[in-house]
């Protein structure tokens, strides 16, 4: 009898956890219930951190929780498809990165149409890239590096673990005529040991990955791939200062919505994002993550995606042509 009573009371206790919480907002206004922000990268990475920072700010601003859901896989195609296929009601949003636009060119059949299936909301900035070399490469700047690379009988090895890293290296080779051999990796964590041991001599990688090793003298940063020098690497010149143009990595971090989401909701989200980027805590947090804050409103983000699409198309056409004997 006693055991039965305990079991019953425990069940009752558990049942209370099921009682749904009524929605608090007034009818007719967006958002009325929690919004899911699908992140195409696993929890714990820099993109996830940026997305969670934005989600927290939007939750406070719009009065409903913005919940991050990590849906990694297939370079982001799985998460992106989940958003493309979701109802365009503003309750399922996407947080993704610049290489998203490369996917339709990389995968066959294309998982989605980057220009038509997604409505840009806002980009909050980008993670900067830099050219890192192993200390065994006797070069203090890009000019010396080019000279050294040309003087070698065999091309130097570069590591590439994302389409963006390969894109930067290919553009660098096209701009300078320096031959380099690509060593592909599944992720930067696999590439780092070979780079630190000098088996691979260089990489065009994210500043956040290489910076701790530059500070320790295990890697040298020869150039940053941004238009301006970075506060984190004040002594490192930009590639443009070294006279090399056209080497960029589309590494923006942005929020997108399924195509067909009502314009009013898109505007509301875009202006809330813009306002969040003006607040001190958000700026401080994103700066700590080494993110370069640069707000792109919907129209500007749409233009950027279009430009990136063309960029990727050229890149993959060139790579395919190079493979032909």
């Amino acid at each position: 009898m006693f055991r039965r009573l305990t079991a019953l009371s425990m069940m009752l206790m558990m049942l209370t956890t099921l009682v749904p919480v009524p929605a608090g907002a007034q009818a007719g206004e967006y958002p009325q219930r929690p919004v899911t922000l699908i992140v195409t990268l696993p929890a714990g990475g820099p993109t996830d951190a940026a997305a969670r920072t934005l989600a927290t700010a939007l939750s406070q601003a719009l009065g409903q929780p913005f919940v991050v859901e990590n849906r990694p896989g297939a370079d982001g195609a799985i998460g992106a498809r989940a958003v493309v296929e979701a109802a365009p009601d503003g309750y399922t949003l996407l947080f993704s990165v610049g290489s998203l636009v490369a996917l339709p060119h990389l995968q066959s059949p294309p998982p989605f149409d980057a220009l038509r299936d997604l409505a840009p909301v806002a980009a909050i900035g980008s993670y900067p890239f830099a050219l890192f070399v192993h200390p065994s490469v006797p070069a203090a700047n890009v000019a010396e590096f080019i000279e050294y690379a040309r003087s070698r009988p065999e091309p130097l090895f570069y590591s590439a673990s994302t389409p963006g890293e390969a894109l930067a290296a290919t553009a660098f080779m096209q701009a300078t005529g320096v031959p380099l051999t690509r060593v592909p990796y599944k992720g930067s964590s696999q590439a780092l040991p070979d780079l630190l041991a000098g088996r691979v001599q260089l990489t065009f990688g994210p500043v956040a990955t290489g910076l701790p090793h530059v500070r320790e003298g295990l890697l040298n940063a020869l150039a940053v791939l941004t238009p301006k020098r970075l506060p984190a690497l004040p002594d490192t010149a930009t590639l443009e200062e070294a006279g090399i143009r056209g080497v960029t990595v589309p590494s923006w971090q942005a929020m997108l919505a399924p195509a067909g989401t009502p314009p009013a909701i898109l505007d509301q989200l875009a202006s809330a994002t813009a306002a969040a980027l003006e607040t001190a805590p958000v700026r401080e947090r994103l700066t700590k993550l080494l993110l370069q804050i640069e707000l792109l409103p919907p129209a500007a983000l749409a233009q950027r995606i279009e430009a990136d699409d063309a960029l990727w198309q050229r890149h993959f056409a060139a790579t395919a042509a190079a493979r032909q004997p």
Partner: peptide, 26 residues
């Protein structure tokens, strides 16, 4: 079923609907 909801949705914060879609309190 109740235990799963308590542990995974409320305890661990797994993102999952508890009730069938289309119910009035959703």
């Amino acid at each position: 079923g109740v235990l799963a909801v308590a542990v995974f949705v409320h305890g661990l914060g797994l993102r999952l609907p508890v009730w069938p879609a289309g119910l009035p309190w959703n």
